[in-house]
Design a protein around this nucleic acid. Structure first.
Lengths: 341, 341
DNA sequence: ATGAAAGCGCTAACAC
DNA sequence: GTGTTAGCGCTTTCAT
């Protein structure tokens, strides 16, 4: 059936096999223009019999159109990004567009390389995490002339447009909620800052809102690498041995918070009476823990859908006027670990 | 600096800006052939000043080479696949090759579509999860004439080559280990089978090895969707209320096993004395749980590196002779939940 | 409804 | 060391 030729099949092969001109074959394969039912069937049959797969490279070059959307994210191991991805996919599946993922490992230079690689395939749009990029990256994005959506974060000035939440505000809101419940001696644990601008901004918003009420973070600790659950345990143990009088622990992500929770439960500490806890992200993954963790939903899927919608709309109509910044509002989930004491 | 022209920049623009022929510009930009230091600098300067990004579409069409490797996986939300990905990336980063991810959501028809899309970009190789594909998918892969590595599973006949573990054997080994520790009344919980061939094979191997010793699974339950941790809890609770005399629970993945563990600890049940537990995958994520879960490492990163090495080697030299099947050996981690009682 | 010609932006192959 | 020529496999445009 599919004879295995050393030379890849071309339109011409289908044309010859079906006795129809290349041009008409092309029309059939793309459902374009008027083609008689008879020829259409002949062509389809021949293409299928040969096992012909069109060459998009040639097609893209000729048509000057590429139905790819570059999605550039820091990592696949942080569940946040796959969730954004699935929002993107859901929307793009209804269009001709296809997402292509590039991973930067939180490294600006790698982001630059990945971006260059992807742009050299002339995608129809770019969705890229964060607002912080090298000058070269920003220049490339501007020069590309295609729609660019920076996602996750709205604290800054987008190159083209942005969809996300304000992490500074998220930090502030959580601080206010914690203070409101009467907690006063607060410790913070998170990822090493320079790698993660959004965690840094949350922390800044957090301390800022505390300061406004005359409260300061009693102790803080940062980690990088390793199993987050285990790190959460370790850091929590270390911090509590340094500062036994802490009454609240704010973590920059849910995984380390969960580790901290498990440690506290091991020690028989009353949550949230003795110590309250909060994380960030609202990872569905963790439903099923002994206590429902207080956290803040980062609107991950919606960020993906909104970003993809912007790209789709602007591919459809490049002149369309859209909001430059879409700021979504994360909601606090109080769970069982942040309660009035 | 980067004037934003409505027309994308081409080699010709760089050629004109630098006063060097297109061909030589092309050579400089690809570090090919001998170019004098002087012209090289002129060209690089002009390209940078203009913000030129080469058009890989045209390049690929002309050179008949595409440095892309299609990686086709069922999902990004299951941590297994990002880990395979990172093994792949690590190896490909040392080469000219670049991975491009496609996601199938465990749906054969979607796999077929994604494969068709990716093959139409004429990648240099394909890494695809599993050995089960539609006839059309197999035909496309065969006809593509490029190296294909099927990963994760070695229980079957690969199209071209395969790297993975034998899930049937993994199930058998776990069954033997459990029986050896004296457990006898065993329950099984896992994902709904038709979606996940590897989980099914593990289960088959498991029951087979039990049968050999005259033991049958007392009860079994399958789930789909939802938070795995929570599902693990629910299913475990339900199963124990049906069969209070169970002494071991085997789960098809670590997340539901962790949920089960948390439930048992809540109930004050002695692990592994009263009931033993085992999962599958060795997810690093879960280090830090109250008990170290018994599990089996699925060699995820190594699967990725080996697969990528095969692709790289065969792109380098298409005639190279390599093993058709690379079967890795998963190791059991006994943890704290599978112990001699 | 179908076909013929031109060319997308680059690189292989060959001159010089 | 550098330039010229001829395509790569499609689609656009225009003719029929």
């Amino acid at each position: 059936m599919t004879n295995d030729p050393s030379r890849p099949l071309t339109l011409r092969d289908v044309s010859e096999a079906s006795g129809v001109s290349e041009m008409t074959v092309s029309r059939v394969l793309r459902n374009r223009g008027d083609v008689s039912q008879a020829t259409r069937e002949k062509v389809l049959e021949a293409a299928k019999a040969l096992g012909y797969v069109p060459n998009k490279i040639a097609g893209a070059l000729a048509s000057q159109r590429v139905n790819l959307v570059a999605v550039i994210i820091p990592s696949l191991r942080n569940m946040v990004f796959p969730e954004v991805m699935s929002g993107i996919s859901k929307v793009l599946e209804e269009t001709e567009l296809q997402p292509v993922v590039g991973v930067t490992d939180y490294m600006p230079e790698k982001e630059e390389r990945v971006l260059y690689e992807m742009l050299s395939w002339r995608p129809s749009g770019v969705i890229i995490a964060g607002l912080e990029h090298t000058d070269a990256s920003r220049a490339m994005l501007k020069a590309s002339g295609i729609p660019v959506v920076e996602v996750m974060d709205t604290d800054g000035k987008p190159i083209d447009s942005a969809v996300g939440i304000s992490h500074r505000r998220a930090g502030r809101e959580m601080a206010k909620a914690i203070l409101k419940q009467g907690y006063q001696r607060i410790g913070f644990m998170g990822t090493k800052m320079p790698l993660d601008h959004r965690a840094r901004k949350r922390f800044e918003g957090f301390t800022e809102a505390l300061a406004k009420e005359g409260v300061e973070v009693v102790d803080q600790e940062f980690y990088s690498g390793g199993s987050a659950l285990a790190k959460g345990r370790e850091m929590t143990e270390a911090m509590l041995s340094r500062d036994p009088e802490l009454d609240f622990l704010y973590y920059s992500n849910d995984m380390i918070a969960a580790g901290g929770m498990l440690h506290l439960l091991d020690k028989g500490i009353d949550i949230p009476g003795e110590i309250g806890l909060a994380g960030f992200n609202g990872v569905e993954l963790l439903q099923g823990l002994p206590r429902q963790l207080a956290t803040m939903d980062a609107c991950r899927t919606e960020i993906g859908t909104r970003a993809a919608q912007i790209i789709a709309a602007r591919v459809e109509n490049p002149d369309i006027e859209l909001d430059k910044i879409v700021e979504l509002t994360p909601t606090i989930a109080f769970g069982d670990t942040l309660k009035r004491r």
